[in-house]
Structure formats: C-alpha cells, structure tokens
Amino acid sequence: MPTPLSTAAQVAEALHDVADPIEEAKIRNRVADDELVVGVRMGTLFDIAKSAVDLPGTELDALFEHPAYEMRLSAFCVLDFRARRNLTSDERAALARIYLDRHDAISTWDMVDRAAPRVLGWPILIEAVDGAVLDELACAEDPLRRRSAITAPLWFIKKGTSADVERGLAIASALDGDEHPRVRSAVEIYRKHARQRNASRD
C-alpha cells in the first residue's frame, strides 16, 4: 500500500519523481502555453492523489494555488476520492463548496470531468446543495464553469430519477450553440448518456 502523503510538498515531490518528457509533450497539447507542466501519466497521477486523500486543508489549498497543472489536477482528484467515501450530506455540501470556491484553479476540461459529477452533482442530487448553482454556472463567462454546469449532472444519469435526467437536459438546452467547443462537447456527452439511459429503460 502506498505511503500516505500529508503535505503539498510531498505530493509535488512524488509527481516530479515520475515526470516523463513524453507525457509532458502530450499534456502540453491541451494546456495554455504559459502553464507549468511536470509531465505525469494520468493513471500515475491518480494513484498519487489517492495517497493524498487526507491532506489537511492548508496543504490542499497549496495544491490548488500551485502554478503546475498536475498539482492542481491532483487537488481536484483528492476531492473526487473524498466524494467516493460514505459521507454525510453536510460533508458532501462542504466538498461541493470547496469545488466552487476553487473553480478559478481549473484551467483544463479534465479537471472538471474528474471532479464535477461526484463532488458537485452528487450533493445537488441529494439536495445538500441548491441546484440553482447549475444555472449560475451555465450563465458564467468562463467556459470551464459552463462545462461544470453540464458535467455535474452526469451524476443524475448515474443515480437519479428520470426527472433528474431532465433537469440536466434543461441545462443542455440552455447551453445549445455555446461558442466554446469544450462546452459543446460536454453538452453532447450529457445528451449521449441520457439517450443511452433512456434506451436501456425502454
């Protein structure tokens, strides 16, 4: 079993220890030109983040504030791994609040896709968080917030009722024709999964 990581510095060291120039080149294709990249394979990064799931709040904050892509992605992976635990409604609401408060740290679509369904969608589904936040995100200027608005409801498809799925489809309709390709692709992903669910229940 991997040794638990308890500081942001340990997470950073673990990521740098497995840095790979080939991975760095792959990642560089999907991040901003000025974004710092270490070069870590996604599966390896997930394993490291899982070892850091119990990071204290100040250490998790340090990951969110780090300039490197992998450090911030690790922070959102930590949220996702925490959301997989048996939590109370209040604990789920607290995770969702961290996600929303730290949304400015999201610089790529994969950070959204990794965390939004369980960390935000789950507490909305169980009404631990007001679902109106999805409408607010859908109206945001930042396309990654708009992607969060339609990616979080993927949890509705997984665990919700038909009415919950329709709530997500309403968000998809609100984002029809969005100017940003990462938002449009997320809308299509939601609709595809909604169709598959509906077909499986016919």
Rank of each mutant, 00 (worst) to 15 (best):
R72S: 10
R114W: 05
V187Q: 03
L79S: 00
R114P: 05
T108F: 08
A116F: 03
S185E: 13
A52C: 09
G43Q: 05
T44C: 08
V129D: 00
I27N: 02
V78M: 06
I98Q: 04
R197F: 13
N86L: 09
R72P: 04
H193P: 00
N86A: 12
D33A: 15
K26S: 14
R92P: 03
A172V: 04
V53M: 01
K50T: 11
K159S: 10
R145C: 10
S162M: 11
R167T: 08
R114C: 15
E136D: 13
V133I: 14
L169K: 01
A62P: 04
R147M: 13
A199N: 02
A172S: 10
R41S: 13
A8E: 04
T88C: 10
P143K: 08
L125K: 01
A83D: 01
T7I: 07
E188S: 09
I27R: 02
T58N: 10
E35K: 08
S162R: 06
R84A: 14
S185V: 12
S74C: 15
V78G: 04
A19Y: 02
G131D: 08
M1A: 13
K159M: 07
A199T: 04
K192C: 07
I27V: 14
D110V: 02
A172I: 03
S148W: 02
E59A: 06
R92L: 15
D80A: 14
E91S: 05
D47Q: 08
L79H: 04
S6Y: 02
C139N: 10
V53W: 00
L175Y: 02
R28N: 08
T3E: 12
D33E: 15
H16P: 00
Q10M: 11
A12L: 11
D54W: 03
G57D: 09
R41H: 15
D54V: 11
E23D: 15
V165L: 09
V183W: 01
T151R: 00
L60K: 06
E166G: 04
N29W: 06
A12Q: 02
I171S: 03
S148L: 09
I124H: 03
I150E: 02
E179Y: 06
E166F: 05
A14G: 14
R201M: 12
R84S: 14
F81G: 02
A32G: 15
F76S: 02
P2S: 14
